[in-house]
């Protein structure tokens, strides 16, 4: 039951059907391959190891327009050993990038939290770049349900 704009009946109907069937016409989507390309842009040719990155996201997303996401990375965050950046990627939004967050030893903890948009159920990956040049990653698979009726 949502409404975004006043539209002629026909398109409202089409959108309602779409909403219930969990299909909404959206522009070209990022693909798992596009996500891999975006990740390669961030890491270069370095290897990525799974681990040390933890993502907190509600298991069932109430509304894909605003999904709370918190990321923590295991790191002492000292001058000699810290997280330089955390980059977040998705598979199915129109673009594979979500955000890149730059931290340093003054951060105290390797933590960042934001709210993101997700057009569909998909895999989200976060990659942490450490001060020693290594990369670590974590992923989460998300289920996004559409609102009862999408109207527009």
């Amino acid at each position: 039951m949502t409404e975004r704009s006043v539209q002629p009946k026909l398109s409202r109907r089409a959108a309602l059907v779409g909403g219930l069937a969990l299909i909404v016409a959206r522009p070209a989507r990022a693909t798992p391959e596009a996500m891999q390309d975006a990740i390669r842009d961030f890491i270069g040719s370095a290897p990525v190891r799974a681990g040390r990155v933890k993502m907190d996201i509600p298991p069932l997303v109430e509304n894909g327009n605003s999904v709370p996401l918190a990321i923590t990375v295991e790191s002492p965050m000292t001058e000699g050993d810290f997280v330089k950046a955390i980059a977040v990627f998705n598979e199915k939004n129109p673009q594979p990038n979500i955000g890149v967050f730059h931290l340093g030893p003054r951060s105290g903890r390797a933590f960042v939290s934001t709210r993101i948009r997700l057009g569909d159920s998909q895999n989200i990956t976060a990659i942490a770049q450490m001060s020693d040049g290594s990369f670590w990653s974590g992923s989460v698979e998300l289920i996004v349900t559409l609102p009862a009726c999408a109207e527009n």
């Binding site: 039951m1 949502t2 975004r4 109907r13 309602l16 509304n63 605003s66 009726c149 109207e151």
Partner: peptide
């Protein structure tokens, strides 16, 4: 503030959504 609207709206906007949901003329 409704996440679906990505903005603020009144009770009338909410009710309008419910009416459209059952395909009544709002």
């Amino acid at each position: 503030y409704r996440l679906e609207w990505q903005g603020i709206g009144s009770l009338q906007r909410r009710l309008r959504g419910c009416l459209i949901g059952v395909r009544a003329e709002p």
